[in-house]
Amino acid sequence: MPPVGRLHLITDTRPGRDPLAVLRAALTVPALAPLGPLMVQVRVEDDWTDRQAYELAQAAVQLCAASGAVCLVNDRVDVALAVGAAGVHLGADDLPVEVARRLLGPGAVIGATARGPDGALAALEAGASYLGVGPAYPTTTKDGLPDSIGPSGVAAVAAATRLPVVAIGGVTADRAPGLLAAGAYGVAVVGAVSAAADPAQALARLVSCLSSAFDGSGAGAR
C-alpha cells in the first residue's frame, strides 16, 4: 500500500475552475519528508458524466505518477479501477469500505469519512486506511454538508482510533497547525489552493506550515 501522506489536495470541479491547471501547479511544489507524498483526491460534481469523471481521473493519475504523488478517486470505485488509481475515498452514501477493499485489493488506499468515534471504529473494522474527518470548519466547496465539528470534534475522533485522521472542511494554512495539535495526522484542502491567485504558492505555504509542526514536538504524530 502506498504511504498515506499528510497533505491531501482535492480537485475543485465547480463551474469556472480548472482542476488540471491547479493540479499541475501544485505538483511543482516539492514534497517534504515529514509530510510524505502529496495525496490527490479526484472529486467531481454530481452532474458530471461517467466519461468526464474518467477523463479527469485518468489525467490526474498520469500527472501524479510523473511527480511521485498518490492519486485517489472520491466516491467512484469503478473509476478508480478503470484508471488504475491508488485507491478511493468513500463517503457515507458510497460503497461500503469492506466492499471497496474486496474489489480494490489489500494494496489499495481506502479513505472513509467519519464524524465521530463510532464511525471511526466502524471504518477501522471494515478495513479503511485513513479517515477523512469533518467538516472541521464551515466550507462552501461542497453542498449539503452537516455543521462543522471544530478542532474538538477532530480531537474526539483522533483519540478513538489508531487510523490516520485527515481533517477536512475550511482548512487553511493558518488553521492547519491547530488541527494537527488536536490530533489530526494531516489535512485535506480544496478552496485554499484552487481559489488562490497562485495555487503553487498557496500549496507551498501549506507545506511549510505543516512541516513546521513536525519539529519533534509530536504534533499530529498519530
Rank of each mutant, 00 (worst) to 15 (best):
G5H: 04
G5P: 04
H8N: 09
I10H: 07
T11I: 12
T13Q: 13
T13I: 06
G16Y: 10
G16T: 04
R17F: 13
R17W: 14
D18K: 01
A21I: 04
L23Q: 08
L32E: 15
P34M: 03
M39A: 05
V40R: 10
V42F: 15
V44N: 02
E45F: 09
E45M: 05
D46C: 01
W48D: 15
Q52C: 03
Q52P: 12
A53P: 12
A53M: 04
E55S: 08
E55H: 13
A59F: 00
A59S: 15
V61L: 08
Q62Y: 03
A66I: 03
A66L: 04
G68P: 14
V70M: 10
V73T: 08
V73M: 07
V77K: 01
V77Q: 05
D78R: 00
D78G: 06
V79L: 09
V79Y: 03
A80N: 02
V83W: 11
A85N: 10
V88S: 11
D94W: 01
L95P: 15
V99N: 12
V99K: 02
R101W: 01
R102E: 15
L103W: 05
L104E: 08
L104M: 11
P106G: 05
G107C: 07
A108M: 01
V109G: 04
I110G: 15
G111V: 01
R115H: 11
D118F: 13
D118I: 10
G119C: 06
G119H: 07
A122H: 07
L124F: 08
A126Y: 00
G127C: 02
A128P: 04
S129C: 03
G132H: 04
V133D: 00
G134K: 15
P135V: 08
T140S: 10
T140P: 06
K142Y: 15
K142S: 09
G144L: 03
D147Q: 14
I149L: 11
G153C: 06
A155N: 01
A155D: 02
V157D: 11
A160M: 07
T161H: 05
T161M: 08
A167N: 03
A167L: 10
V171I: 14
A173Q: 03
D174E: 15
P177D: 02
L180D: 10
A181W: 03
G183V: 07
Y185S: 00
V189A: 02
G191M: 02
G191W: 01
A192D: 13
A192Q: 14
V193Y: 05
A195T: 09
A196Y: 00
P199V: 10
L203T: 13
A204P: 04
L210V: 08
S211H: 06
D215Q: 11
G216V: 03
G216W: 06
A219H: 14
G220I: 09
R222E: 01
